[in-house]
Design a protein around this nucleic acid. Structure first.
Lengths: 171, 171
DNA sequence: CGTATGAGTTCGATGACCGAACCTGGATCG
DNA sequence: CGATCCAGGTTCGGTCATCGAACTCATACG
């Protein structure tokens, strides 16, 4: 969805959708929470046309959701990482994931509080500790159920439980 | 954003975005929470092309987010109202509104717990009562600050504080 | 009867999205 | 040293979604 402007809507929702409302954008942010940082990994995991991925990454950097920095291990490459504003999108992402799991086909990943292992409720709250952990303290694991999964380098790494935001290596 | 399919993404987020990820869709859902129920009111408040509005409403009905029923007062017209699944989108909407208010220009509407008048935190939680009220128990009021607002029949009604989901009349 | 209004549908033009091909610059291989 | 490879893009032509304006059709209004 470009034509990403909702200029006459005087509303914070419209502002938010101008940043993360385009096609693919939230899936890119989701992958950033899963620790994906490289252009090629995103492309392989999302099957998005490179031109679109390039456009979306530029937009997210410009809007302060991602930061692009040179890859210290490879000259001429970049790493894309969530900024503080990007990490603040965790409640949005978790709410959407919960809704999708409740009202669509329910399988996906499960999220637990890393400190105690309790599954988060729909608001992202740990009922055991009575805190709402930030993404750094959330553990994400694939639910067992289902076959027919993707088979790209990123998907293979994600078959193990991982903390959110932990950099993901595919090399 | 049609081309609303993310068929190879085995993820509840992708499922959710197939339902509410298209351009205009979440703004329509927002208006439904504000009590807007008629085609024309939506069109006037959103400035969306009628063809697109018609398409989105059909999609939302088909996906079980809205219910379309005949308007008892006017033969041949319809009312669109949130289903239970649609009302479950409140946490998503609130999270997005909070994020947009925090990281964009901050003005919009404020949401308070109707029972006690306490503003909701970013997770939609009332810290005073220690509950997370559903949309029925949330009061929505315009923040004073700012001028240059819209001037359509829906916007005029929304200048008063209102409970979410309370049917909005423009006649 | 004539006009207005709600709720759409149809239509041509514009612009976003798509996949494939191409480009660039550093790393690796023989 | 030259050939190849790969990450990370950009360019290109075709398709499909979106746009605003015009049109339809049924009811309500005077």
């Amino acid at each position: 969805m470009l034509g990403n402007r909702y200029q006459d809507q005087d509303c914070a929702l419209a502002r938010a959708l101008e940043v993360i409302g385009e096609r693919w954008t939230l899936l890119i942010v989701r992958d950033a929470f899963y620790g994906v940082r490289r252009f090629n990994d995103l492309q392989a995991h999302l099957d998005v046309p490179k031109a679109v991925l390039s456009d979306r990454l530029s937009g997210l950097v410009e809007d302060g959701v991602l930061e692009r920095r040179p890859d210290p291990e490879h000259r001429g490459r970049h790493l894309y990482e969530l900024t503080a504003a990007g990490r603040d999108l965790w409640p949005v992402l978790h709410a959407l994931l919960s809704w999708g799991a409740r009202h669509g086909s329910s399988n996906s990943r499960a999220f637990t509080h890393a400190a105690c292992g309790t599954p988060l409720d729909d608001a992202g709250h740990c009922t055991d500790c009575d805190v709402t952990p930030g993404p750094h303290d959330v553990l994400s694991a694939p639910r067992p159920g289902r076959g027919r999964l993707r088979d790209d380098p990123v998907a293979r790494v994600l078959r193990a439980p991982r903390r959110l935001l932990e950099p993901l290596e595919t090399s």
